[in-house]
Amino acid sequence: MSEDCIRDELKELGELIGLTSVKEAIEDLVVHLVNERSYRAQGARILPARRHLVFSGPAGVGKRRVARTFGQICARLGALEKGHMVVVDGEDLTAVSFDKKVALMRERCAAALDGVLFIRNDAFLPAGILRSTGDLRLDAVDVMIDFMLRHRGRMLVILDARPNQFDYISFHLGLARLFNQTIAFPPYDVFELLQILAAKARRMDLELPEGIECDLFPWIIANMRRSDWRNACEIGNLFSRAVGQRASRGIRLRRADFGAFERDDFRQALATMQSDVPVLAHPFGIPGRRPRPGLP
């Protein structure tokens, strides 16, 4: 499967933390693309393949990043002409009028020609089954399907769906026929989230302070049970706040160089994110501590 033209993209996928099953699924798709490219080079006539995908999983697990990288791979291997990605968010379809909603979807589809159209789960995939064909969001789906059929082979559509939205995909016959492959993105575990945090620090040529795991483990374990937990997005938010605390400390001490992270930077960041986190048994058996306001 080794292809020099996609070496950088495969390296980018390989460097993603966790997501082993996702990487294997993408590699299988790449094998098919490489074979198709070989057949075309030999003069074989290849019919436009139906590659539209459903990415299933919670928020913050890299679905958009994988979609963008896969689009670039498709372009490198000749399956798409450009490989760029256009994202449709729920905010794009909040127009009241039917005409405006349809026009917006047609505009996004046209912009995604020869590339990837990434539909976020909040765009028009409701939690329940839509039974009314007069629903404005259902009309937007029909516009997309019509565009996909008229421009077959010129666009890769990826639906970002939650597990409770599969009933809707099955209910809508057009979607069920076009999207017949699902790649499941698992949530990150606590160790992978800490690796993501450490990687963010290394990009700034910094290291996490010693003992930070004792502060972060209880907070992560307690909050990852929430239905709205956003995995790596939560870690990114925490890291941004810790960077801000580090900068504030440097300014307060009148230091030109803000210096290394301190454990208190992350403690203060946690305090701004959540005022009271329950103490849980540490996975390594370290006894819990009585919580202070804002700290685990």
Rank of each mutant, 00 (worst) to 15 (best):
D4W: 00
D8E: 15
D8P: 06
E9F: 00
L10V: 10
E15G: 09
I17N: 09
D28M: 06
L29E: 15
V34M: 03
N35G: 00
N35C: 06
R45G: 05
R45A: 13
L47E: 14
A49M: 15
L53R: 13
V54Y: 00
F55P: 03
A59C: 11
A59E: 15
A59Q: 14
G62Y: 12
R64Q: 12
R65C: 01
V66S: 13
V66N: 14
G71Y: 06
Q72W: 01
Q72A: 09
E81R: 14
H84E: 15
V86Y: 05
V88K: 03
E91W: 01
T94D: 03
D99F: 09
K100A: 15
A110K: 12
A110L: 05
A112C: 08
L117G: 09
F118G: 08
A123H: 04
A127I: 00
L130H: 03
T133A: 06
V141M: 07
L149A: 05
R152N: 09
M155A: 08
D160V: 06
R162D: 12
D167I: 00
H172I: 02
L173E: 15
L178W: 02
L178V: 02
P186N: 03
D189R: 03
E192F: 00
A198T: 08
A199H: 14
I212T: 06
E213F: 04
F217A: 07
P218A: 05
I220C: 01
I220H: 06
A222H: 10
R226W: 07
D228G: 06
N231L: 08
C233F: 07
I235F: 07
G236K: 05
F239H: 04
Q245F: 05
R249Y: 01
R254S: 13
G259V: 04
R263Y: 02
D264Q: 15
D265V: 01
R267K: 15
A271H: 12
Q274I: 10
D276I: 05
D276K: 05
H282G: 10
G288R: 11
R289E: 11
R289P: 03
L295A: 00
P296Q: 08
